[in-house]
Nucleic acid binder design. Structure first.
Length: 646
RNA sequence: GCCUCCUUAGCUCAGUGGUAGAGCAGCUCACUCGUAAUGAGCAGGUCGUGGGUUCAACUCCCAUGGGAGGCUCCA
């Protein structure tokens, strides 16, 4: 007998060789049916794998990431089995589970192409194979056996993978006629895969190397119940409806023109106004937090970027330099504001008493992005950063960090992002050549970030090797209304630029000292922030920010004069108001203006004209009753002050 | 940049080797209306662009612009 310990601490005895599935069954068959994988002594195991010794066992139901992982990984194998039937001789790369589903990278063979039209075929074949209820069997093989098997199959991708594995650790999984190299764990059999959707096709370089072969990546997702797949498809549809590119066009916020150039956003009047409101709001906040505003040109001499080191690192991947016709001087489009800000720092002498200096600019920068990378407002070639640089003494580093974290928390709250996490990106100690700066400075900076985040009670994850080449950073990820994650703000420590630009301040000892620099952006860029805001709110922006706050709806043309009086009164009271005096029925006007996402609809008819009132309807909430125009103005002002404070 | 796909009216989308259609939006007229679609009419596209095949191309082929999803990249 062996002793099995459960997560709640209880211990039960089973006979040697019991499987996790049987353990689950011993609790209840209902549980066993809902369990997909198990963690045995800290290792992820197949449910069917026999447990030979005393162990701690945790059973994974669908809500555990571990269960989904096994489920989707097995689904990838099922898809591979289907592909092998449909394209005999097809070669397989890797086929892992991912956050939402799974994919398999395949090479259909010379001249053969898999297209979108094939996706339903694959899906049908998968359903057919799943229904066979084939058990999934694990076997341990020697490296030699594995090599022979896949060499015989002619699958050079698998043999390449095997050649890098250690002998004695190689496992194969087989279901039906399909065998794959795999670490596992997997489901007990394919019958648990009830709902299947093959989603899309994409190209993917073999092993992520752009010099190697482009494989065909096939994405899919599966669920144990049709209902879950239906819900997932609804979520995908909801995400599609919230797409900022669609809403941005619909609400006339921004546009792109091939004539202007791809990746170069054009802000239309309503979008430009909104962007300006965000900038004005942020500027006001910054001024209360000790920032000074600066302004710098859109280009800079190439020597500036040679000094900063950006030219060496990114020069080849930048827009080509600009040359003056007479003097032959070379300029670059500004890819970063920081070198300019360093020269602003250098324009005047500094004492330790005036540090920290918090220098902010809404600076527009230009970066070459590969054409395939451009995406709406989230990935563009021209964007305006809400950039700032803190120049501080080394002893102020942690406090500055904390002040920025505080600012991020404040701004995110007002923007309606109540749920966010932070990632601390540190350097990879085994790959020091990638980074510049002394070990001592790196350690100090990493320590300051970790401590500041801890003291601010941030929920953080640590990512080794994700630091910028000049320093560690703290990135903020918000979760939107439908659960997607977006990266917005970032805080980065930099000892490099102060050195390169020879920044100094006079210390209390009357000696020159070098300040530490912190780069930070809260919105990230105005473009990206507006995009995320659109996707989070589906275009129903907070009242203070939205392009049109109210619309006056006269019930018939007889009331147009009074409606215009209200329209003028509100606009003169700084409430952005439209009037809909079309000759349409009131129901139609309400519908149209609700669809235009206008927060307040003001219905004007005979009663309102006589009583000198307006009938207020709040978007999505319906009729709010009648009130005097001045009371409506107060109502709007109260709403706004609730949103952004005074 | 690479892979797969897409590109028809302002928007969403039909469509066939025999030189184009709907709904919504727009405009005009009638109606003058009480909280999510009043009716009628009109107008609107050299089917992304350039070649080629064909008696004939929106349709088939090639190139190219733009877009989508991925890969790679992201100071």
């Amino acid at each position: 007998m062996i002793r099995i310990t459960f997560p709640n601490g209880s211990v039960r005895e089973f006979s040697k060789g019991v499987s996790s599935y049987e353990i689950a069954q011993s609790i209840s068959q209902g549980l066993a049916n809902e369990v997909y994988s198990a963690t045995v002594n800290g290792e992820l195991w197949d449910l069917s794998r026999p447990v030979e010794t005393d162990a701690t066992v945790r059973l994974h139901k669908w809500d555990d990431a571990e269960a989904k992982h096994a489920f989707w990984h097995s689904s990838a194998h099922l898809m591979a089995e289907a592909l092998e039937v449909l394209w005999p001789g097809i070669k397989f790369g890797i086929g892992p589970a991912v956050e939402n589903g799974f994919y398999y990278d395949v090479d259909p063979g010379d001249g053969k192409v898999i297209t979108d039209a094939d996706l339903p075929l694959i899906e049908e074949k998968m359903k057919e194979l799943a229904a066979k209820n084939s058990p999934i069997n694990r076997s341990v093989v020697s490296k030699k056996e594995a090599m022979e098997l896949f060499t015989a199959k002619g699958d050079e991708y698998k043999t390449e993978l095997i050649s890098e594995l250690e002998d004695g650790t190689i496992t194969l999984y087989r279901q039906g006629n399909f065998t794959d190299l795999c670490r596992g764990p997997h489901l007990r059999d394919t019958s648990q895969i009830k709902a299947i959707k093959v989603l899309s096709l994409a190209g993917a370089y073999w092993r992520g190397d752009e010099k190697r072969k482009m494989m065909t990546r096939i994405y899919g997702i599966t669920f144990p119940k049709q209902k879950l797949l239906d819900e997932y498809m609804v979520m995908i549809e909801e995400a599609r409806k919230r797409d900022h590119r669609r809403i941005g066009k619909d609400m006339e916020l921004f546009a792109f023109s091939p004539k202007v150039g791809m990746g170069l956003p054009l802000w239309l009047p309503k979008g430009a106004d909104m962007k300006q409101r965000l900038i004005d709001f942020m500027t006001k906040v910054l001024k209360t937090r000790g920032y000074v505003m600066v302004s710098t040109p859109h280009i800079g001499n190439v020597d500036l970027y040679k000094t900063s080191g950006h030219f060496e690192k990114y020069g080849a991947d930048s827009f080509r330099p600009i040359t003056t016709p007479q003097e032959g001087e070379t300029f670059m489009l500004k890819p970063m504001n920081c070198p300019h800000h360093c020269e602003i720092y250098n324009a005047t002498p500094h004492s330790y008493k005036e540090l920290p200096i918090r220098m902010a600019e809404f600076g527009t920068v230009y970066r070459y992005e590969m054409s395939g990378e451009l995406h709406g407002l989230t990935r563009v070639r021209s964007f305006t950063q809400d950039d700032a640089h803190h120049f501080c003494r080394p002893d102020q580093l942690k406090e500055e960090f904390k002040s920025i974290i505080d600012l991020v928390q404040y701004i995110f709250k007002i923007a309606g992002f109540n749920e966010f996490t932070a990632q601390i990106s540190l350097r990879d100690p085994s790959n020091r050549d990638k980074y510049i700066g002394t070990d001592e400075n790196w350690e100090k900076a990493e320590q300051a970030i970790i401590e500041a985040a801890g003291e601010k009670n941030l929920t953080t994850t640590i990512a080794i090797g994700e630091a910028a080449f000049y320093g560690p950073k703290l990135d903020f990820m918000v979760r939107d209304a439908i659960g997607r994650k977006w990266q917005l703000g970032t805080i980065q420590v930099d000892y490099n630029l102060p050195e390169r630009f020879e920044l100094t301040y006079n210390g209390s000892d009357n000696q020159k000292h070098q300040p530490v620099m912190i780069h930070r952006a809260i919105f990230g860029s105005m473009e990206r922030f507006v995009a995320v805001l659109i996707e989070n709110t589906a275009g129903k922006f907070p009242l203070w920010l939205t392009p049109d706050q109210a619309v006056v709806l006269p019930i018939s043309e007889k009331f147009n004069d009074y409606a215009k009086t209200i329209f003028n009164l509100l606009n003169n009271s700084d409430i952005r108001t439209l009037i809909d005096d079309r000759s349409e029925k009131i129901g139609k006007k309400i519908r149209d203006n609700e669809l235009k996402r206008i927060p307040y609809l003001l219905v004007i008819g005979e009663k309102e004209v006589e009583a000198g009132t307006v009938s207020v309807r709040r978007q999505g909430e319906g009729d709010k009753g009648v009130m005097k125009p001045k009371d409506f103005i107060s109502l709007v002002r109260e709403d706004i002050s609730k949103e952004i404070g005074n």
